[in-house]
Amino acid sequence: MRRFSLWLRGKPFVADSMLATILFVLEGLSAPNSQAPWLFVLLGLALCVPIAFRRRHPVLAAATILGLSIMTTVISSWIGDDTVTHPGQLGLAVMLYTLVAYVGRKPAAFYLVGLAVDSALAIWLLHQDIGTTAAFITLFYALSWITAEFLGARRLYDEEVAARLAVAEYDRDRRAEEAVAGERTRIARELHDVVAHAVSVMVVQADGASYAVRRNPDGAERALGNIASTGRQALAELRRTVALLRTEQTPAEMPQHGTAGVAKVVDMMRDAGLRVELEMTGELDDIRPALSLGIHRVVQESLTNVLRHAGTSPRARVRVRRRDEDVLVEITDNGRGSSQFTQGSGNGLVGMRERVAVLQGNLETGREPDGSWRVRAELPLHPDD
């Protein structure tokens, strides 16, 4: 029974047609008491049909059944059916309920005036008792109005709740999609930082080893050792990155950031043949992990770009200074030379900008008047929530 009720709730036209059918059956049962049974049945059918369309065309259905009710009263008076009532006229109360619940109070109030005219005409033409009939009709229509107010308010509340749930579900899905996109961006940035840095160093070392293998075997051997060391470090950091993605717990062996991490990157770049001057000022080991990682990656990406694009004798200067409200990271090189490496894709600078933006910092990159290239990042110690 409950399933059937839920099924009907989703098919209003079927439910209204069933109500119209029930009223028409009652019309058929009352027809033998009429002076003209076939005419009675035809009038009853006309009264019941608009009820099936009460929610599809409420105003038209209400006006139609009111007009038919007035016509039925006149015809009943003409053929002498003073004592036989049409059950289909219960549809007047149904239409009053429909207008209040689905259309509005103002159209329902006008309709109520029409119902008063219809009731007065029935009392006059069918010689009904004024007091009893008026009291019954008033109570009946008042009950229809009150029921419509209550159920209409409940329906509007249910619709509002459903709308809010739909909005909440959409917002949840959107947030989930944004979280997935953000996570993919973060993973891509992390992997790019690790792989691009390691591969660039390994390419430089491999190229140097290929030139030195005959003339300077010791130098070639050192370069090959640096390649192996860089590859192992890149592989270890990749494993740590994947471990961070797989679990919420902090792995026992975390990447080294802070002053030690920056110094390690500089040492690795020096081993690759890049002359680097490092200057660190202020306490950098007690800052939040995200900011420490950001500093590490900006230095790493900038020095990798210098190694790839700054010419045959690249030099760089790294300054990391903690100030009152932020940390200043500045990397400058000696200007672009005739590098044998191809231009990069630009993803390094894009990833650097994204990382700095996430940290609510400012990033400036560009060529200086003396031809050198400068990367300057200002990363706030305490970003806005």
Rank of each mutant, 00 (worst) to 15 (best):
residue 76 S to Y: 08
residue 76 S to D: 14
residue 76 S to H: 13
residue 76 S to E: 07
residue 76 S to P: 04
residue 77 S to Q: 10
residue 77 S to H: 09
residue 77 S to K: 05
residue 78 W to V: 07
residue 78 W to S: 13
residue 78 W to P: 02
residue 78 W to G: 04
residue 79 I to H: 15
residue 79 I to P: 13
residue 79 I to G: 10
residue 79 I to Q: 13
residue 79 I to K: 02
residue 79 I to Y: 15
residue 80 G to H: 05
residue 80 G to I: 00
residue 80 G to F: 02
residue 80 G to S: 10
residue 81 D to L: 07
residue 81 D to G: 08
residue 81 D to M: 04
residue 81 D to R: 03
residue 81 D to C: 03
residue 82 D to G: 15
residue 82 D to F: 15
residue 82 D to C: 06
residue 82 D to A: 09
residue 82 D to K: 12
residue 82 D to S: 12
residue 82 D to Q: 13
residue 82 D to M: 13
residue 82 D to R: 14
residue 83 T to C: 06
residue 83 T to N: 14
residue 83 T to K: 09
residue 83 T to V: 12
residue 83 T to D: 14
residue 83 T to G: 04
residue 83 T to A: 10
residue 83 T to P: 03
residue 84 V to H: 08
residue 84 V to M: 07
residue 85 T to S: 14
residue 85 T to Q: 11
residue 85 T to W: 14
residue 85 T to K: 07
residue 85 T to M: 13
residue 86 H to W: 10
residue 86 H to T: 02
residue 86 H to Y: 15
residue 86 H to A: 07
residue 86 H to D: 01
residue 86 H to C: 01
residue 87 P to W: 10
residue 88 G to C: 11
residue 88 G to L: 07
residue 88 G to S: 10
residue 88 G to Q: 08
residue 88 G to V: 06
residue 88 G to M: 07
residue 88 G to P: 09
residue 88 G to F: 06
residue 89 Q to I: 06
residue 89 Q to E: 15
residue 89 Q to R: 15
residue 89 Q to P: 05
residue 89 Q to D: 06
residue 90 L to P: 09
residue 90 L to K: 02
residue 90 L to E: 04
residue 90 L to T: 11
residue 90 L to G: 12
residue 90 L to I: 12
residue 91 G to I: 04
residue 91 G to S: 06
residue 91 G to D: 01
residue 92 L to M: 12
residue 92 L to G: 11
residue 92 L to Y: 09
residue 92 L to W: 07
residue 92 L to E: 03
residue 92 L to I: 15
residue 92 L to Q: 05
residue 92 L to F: 13
residue 93 A to V: 11
residue 93 A to K: 05
residue 93 A to L: 12
residue 93 A to Y: 11
residue 93 A to P: 12
residue 93 A to E: 08
residue 94 V to S: 12
residue 94 V to Y: 10
residue 94 V to C: 13
residue 95 M to W: 01
residue 95 M to K: 01
residue 95 M to F: 01
residue 96 L to D: 02
residue 96 L to A: 11
residue 96 L to Y: 04
residue 97 Y to D: 00
residue 97 Y to Q: 00
residue 97 Y to N: 05
residue 97 Y to G: 06
residue 97 Y to S: 05
residue 98 T to C: 13
residue 98 T to D: 08
residue 98 T to M: 03
residue 98 T to N: 07
residue 98 T to Q: 11
residue 99 L to T: 07
residue 99 L to W: 07
residue 99 L to K: 02
residue 99 L to Q: 05
residue 99 L to Y: 07
residue 99 L to N: 04
residue 100 V to H: 08
residue 100 V to G: 03
residue 100 V to A: 00
residue 100 V to S: 05
residue 100 V to P: 04
residue 101 A to V: 04
residue 101 A to C: 03
residue 101 A to I: 01
residue 101 A to Y: 00
residue 101 A to Q: 10
residue 102 Y to C: 00
residue 102 Y to W: 10
residue 102 Y to S: 11
residue 102 Y to T: 14
residue 102 Y to V: 00
residue 102 Y to P: 00
residue 102 Y to G: 09
residue 103 V to E: 03
residue 103 V to N: 01
residue 103 V to Y: 01
residue 103 V to C: 02
residue 103 V to A: 03
residue 104 G to S: 04
residue 104 G to M: 06
residue 104 G to H: 03
residue 104 G to C: 09
residue 104 G to D: 07
residue 104 G to Q: 02
residue 104 G to A: 00
residue 105 R to I: 14
residue 105 R to T: 14
residue 105 R to V: 14
